[in-house]
Simulated scan of single mutants.
Amino acid sequence: MAEQSWQWDPSLYSGSARYYPRGRMPYPKALADALAAELELDGSGRLLDIGCGPGSLTLLLADRFEQAIGVDADPDMLNEASRLAAEANVDNTQWHHLRAEDLPASLGTFRLVTFAQSFHWMDRPKVAAIARGMLATDGAVAHVHAVTHEGIEGTEALPHPRPPHAAITELVRSYLGPTRRAGQGTLPNGTARGEDAIYRAAGFTGPQHIEIPGRVLTRSADEVVAAVFSLSSAAPHLFGDELPKFEAELRKLLHDASPTGTFSEQTREIAVHIWRP
């Protein structure tokens, strides 16, 4: 990536794919409804979800299009996406194993291109320009700003205890060190930001802002464990031979916080920025 010293490598989410669908809190139907209303989605046209992971957003939006295509650099994520599509009887999807930088890859044009928790892993100026060139005449890009691995802290009463996120973070650091891991490299300053200027430099106008309110969800201890392993900063391969020991300590931490193994999460709001060429 031209914007920072960290370089993408195939181990970024190594071992995380099987945890991702269980550990990440699902996008709500309200997100699909809001996009459909704003963009007048009527079942026509095509969707391209870039950095689709296991298809969390792709599958949510698939029935609003003739065809939905997910692209991701991790083959295990795409295997999960294909499995989940089959389980949900969603038959208008395709999954392509390639990096965003290798688009357009003869995939054609699209009514909507989406980035959901993925854009920061890419060569953003290059990918933004590519995405603009892949839009149909009336097309748009939707950038989904969301955090799905954990909820927000707060003082309001919830039905069950919140997961002990701060303690989980410290436990991860005790094994992997204080600097955030990412594949074979580190992200001492976190992931890249400032995408608005990048979209505008690529020729987009906007953004138009949509916000989906947060909600309260019930989570099991298994789901919280899966959420940890779904992260690039705590992907299973990073722990090496100490993975079983780490997981045992993580589960003890969760049991101490909620002996019933049940937690409540107040999710963050989801912000969507719509960009048009």
Rank of each mutant, 00 (worst) to 15 (best):
Pro26Cys: 09
Gly154Lys: 02
Gly190Ser: 01
Ala136Gly: 05
Val272Pro: 01
Pro277Cys: 01
His149Gln: 13
Gly151Cys: 03
Arg132Phe: 10
Leu112Ile: 05
Ser11Met: 12
Asp63Gln: 09
Thr155Asn: 15
Gln67Asp: 13
Leu61Met: 15
Trp121Arg: 07
Gly203Ala: 14
Thr179Gln: 10
Leu243Pro: 04
His96Ser: 13
His237Cys: 01
Gln117Arg: 15
Ile198Leu: 13
Arg24Thr: 00
Ile212Cys: 03
Tyr199His: 07
Asp49Trp: 04
Leu243Arg: 06
Glu80His: 12
Thr109Met: 08
Arg124Cys: 13
Glu3Met: 11
Leu57Gly: 06
Arg124Lys: 13
Gln7Pro: 14
Ala73Met: 08
Glu242Met: 11
Trp121Asn: 02
Gly45Pro: 00
Gly151Ile: 02
Ser233Ile: 01
Phe119Glu: 12
Arg215Glu: 11
Ala157Met: 12
Met134Ala: 09
Tyr199Val: 12
Ala227Leu: 06
Trp95Asn: 02
Tyr199Asp: 03
Ala136Met: 11
Leu171Asp: 12
Asp49His: 14
Ala129Asp: 04
Ser82Gly: 15
Ala34Cys: 05
His209Asn: 07
Leu176His: 00
Ala17Trp: 02
Pro104His: 12
Leu231Ser: 02
Pro10Ser: 10
Gly70Cys: 06
Pro178Tyr: 00
Ala37Trp: 09
Val172Asp: 05
Leu250Asn: 00
Gly185Lys: 11
Ile274Gly: 06
Gln7Ser: 14
Arg268Ser: 15
Ser230His: 04
Val225Ile: 08
His145Arg: 10
Arg219Val: 08
Pro10Glu: 13
Gly151Val: 03
Glu40Leu: 13
Glu38Gln: 15
Pro236Ile: 02
Phe115Val: 09
Leu107Gly: 07
Gly194Gln: 09
Gly206Val: 12
Ala167Gln: 12
Ile152Gln: 13
Pro75Cys: 10
Ala234Asn: 04
Phe229Gln: 04
Asp74Tyr: 05
Ala34Lys: 06
Pro28Ile: 15
His143Thr: 14
His97Val: 09
Asp222His: 06
Asp72Leu: 01
Tyr175His: 12
His97Met: 11
Ala234Phe: 09
Glu40Ala: 14
Tyr19Leu: 02
His149Val: 10
Thr137Gly: 11
Val113Gly: 03
Asn189Asp: 15
Ala248Ser: 15
Thr58Val: 07
Val113Gln: 07
His120Thr: 02
